[in-house]
């Protein structure tokens, strides 16, 4: 249990998707103009990461990893389907996003109206595939750990995009040098936020 919470906190602050690995930067830069939309996108990312990482964990554990097929019989222990990882993960993500979209549309039209436009965008958000690939690379031991990593990364991404959106709303009133306006200053602010987040490095829970 302690391990699980530690992974959660670590993936929010220390291994933050945006500041430490630059994942999901495209939508991070494009959708962070106002706080309202960035909250919507952030929640959608938490949602999708929380679902796709555990699903891909199961697929890695029982289908793709080295020796993962041994439950089929002793002759399958040597089979290693690892080279299929990318194509399977991206297919899982694309179909999960589609599925989530349909389920939300059916059961909660209000939520669908606020998240709906963001969900298709998210299928090609690097943070989602990155989450699954990091999960595979770091070899988590149980589905609980994988889920807490997925949710934690989502929350970290949420914090990052809401933070930058709030700053961008305020910076409109500042006198930024003309060539830096818009994109340039956003990069630099993100860099400074990243330096601030590095304070969390080395914290153990």
């Amino acid at each position: 249990m302690q391990e699980v919470t530690s992974i959660f906190v670590k993936s929010i602050f220390i291994d933050n998707m945006v500041f430490a690995y630059f994942l999901g930067m495209c939508s991070y830069l494009a959708v962070s103009r106002t706080v309202k939309t960035s909250v919507g996108l952030g929640i959608a990312v938490i949602f999708v990461l929380g679902i796709t990482v555990p699903v891909n964990y199961l697929i890695h554990e029982f289908l793709l990893g080295p020796g993962a097929l041994s439950w089929l019989g002793p002759s399958f222990t040597d089979v290693n389907l690892n080279f299929l990882t990318f194509i399977v993960f991206i297919a899982v993500i694309a179909s999960m996003v589609q599925l989530v979209e349909m389920i939300i549309e059916k059961f909660s039209p209000a939520l669908y109206n606020s998240l709906g436009i963001f969900l298709p965008l998210i299928a090609v958000n690097c943070a989602i595939l990155g989450g699954s690939l990091f999960m595979q690379e770091r070899e988590y031991h149980s589905i609980a750990e994988a889920t807490s990593f997925g949710l934690g990364s989502g929350v970290g991404w949420f914090i990052a995009i809401v933070g930058i959106a709030a700053i961008r709303e305020k910076i409109r009133y500042s006198n930024v040098p003309a060539p830096l306006r818009g994109l340039g200053i956003t990069y630099i602010i993100t860099g400074l936020m990243g330096i601030a987040f590095m304070m969390f490095m080395g914290i153990k829970i």
Binding site: F19, A20, Y21, F22, P177, A178, P179, L180, R181, G182, L183, G184, I185, Y187, I188, T190, G191, L192, M193, G194, I195, M198
Partner: peptide, 25 residues
Amino acid sequence: LPPMALIVVGIIIWVQRSRVRDLIE
């Protein structure tokens, strides 16, 4: 460290947009 990559790109944008004025937002 990772954050410096962002700052370097920010500076590249700065240089580029001072040269190509019509890109300024």
